[in-house]
Design a binder for these strands. Structure first.
Lengths: 158, 158
DNA sequence: AACCAGTTTAAAATCTTTCTAAACTGTGAC
DNA sequence: GTCACAGTTTAGAAAGATTTTAAACTGGTT
């Protein structure tokens, strides 16, 4: 059996978090964090699992914080914000802004677009191929295009 | 000559505001407000002038409030917010959300798209014809498209 | 085992936006 | 003109999301 020393040391805690987050092989998130040069802390590992082991989805900081909490992961809201921004900065997460006063984070960083249901306040992915942008303007002098977002706003049919 | 009674009654004040806002014929904004069924108050007239007599532009609530102030128009920030939303609701203004935590209001309500300079935090219009969207997905079951936004994010060239 | 740069955290602070309740003002009736 | 009242405005409080701060903690090394 494993160690019998004091319970709840950081390694055990990480393993617990993993189980709680409904995880896949430990190595995935760990490797992912190492790849992007972020120290694989207990909190980052747990958040990475919640984010990347559940398929493509869109989530706010508050929602992720709540998800972590209810998965039994102890992490502060500030850390959730820090982590989301770090993940975005290293390119494993994408920020989507469609509503005033709230940011969504998208675990799908492949090229694609979005439906935004204004009534429900809810995002859905649109595969890149479903949209054809056959003409685009030249960027302003001295600037270059970093991304083209197509947001299709929808509402319930009258 | 005009009245010699107490200075600064509401009519005189409105005329002052108009002059201060660098205005065109009084009738324009007045007619516009009547058309959309908003009572033409001193504050709404002044804000309408600042918004619509300066050509197409993008402005935040804070910026409009500052502009009003420095034009000598006395108006509270709450009224600026109220007015922007009322103007949006009646369709003479459009809200553009591209940055977390801040809304821009666009005086151009004709179909068009936007460049957003991420470094400078600055919006520019793209004429509708400069973008060709030749394929779009069907909206989700039961929903209908209300608008398609194309946002081209740019940055200074490396 | 000690060290330290990187992390996490609770709490405070910030920023934008909305709400509240009271005072004010267009507008139509008389 | 003057009244009355619904619609407006306002200062200040409140809310909501996000960021900052300063101190405690921890992963990775030596």
């Amino acid at each position: 059996m494993k160690r019998l020393t004091g319970r709840n040391d950081s390694t055990d805690q990480a393993a617990d978090d993993e189980r709680r987050a409904g995880a896949r092989p430990f190595a995935d998130s760990l490797a992912r964090l190492k790849e992007v040069g972020l120290r694989p802390t207990r909190q980052r590992l747990a958040l990475a699992k919640l984010l990347f082991d559940a398929g493509d989805h869109h989530i706010t900081a508050e929602q992720l914080h709540a998800a972590a909490r209810s998965a039994g992961v102890k992490v502060s809201l500030a850390t959730v914000y820090n982590t989301l921004h770090q993940f975005k900065d290293v390119g494993i997460l994408r920020e989507v802004v469609v509503e005033p006063g709230r940011s969504y984070f998208d675990t799908n960083v492949r090229p694609h677009h979005h439906f935004f249901h204004e009534g429900r306040g809810h995002l859905t992915d649109i595969p890149d191929e479903a949209v054809a942008l056959t003409r685009l303007p030249d960027p302003p002098e001295g600037a270059e295009i970093s991304r083209v977002d197509v947001i299709i706003r929808v509402n319930d049919r009258a």
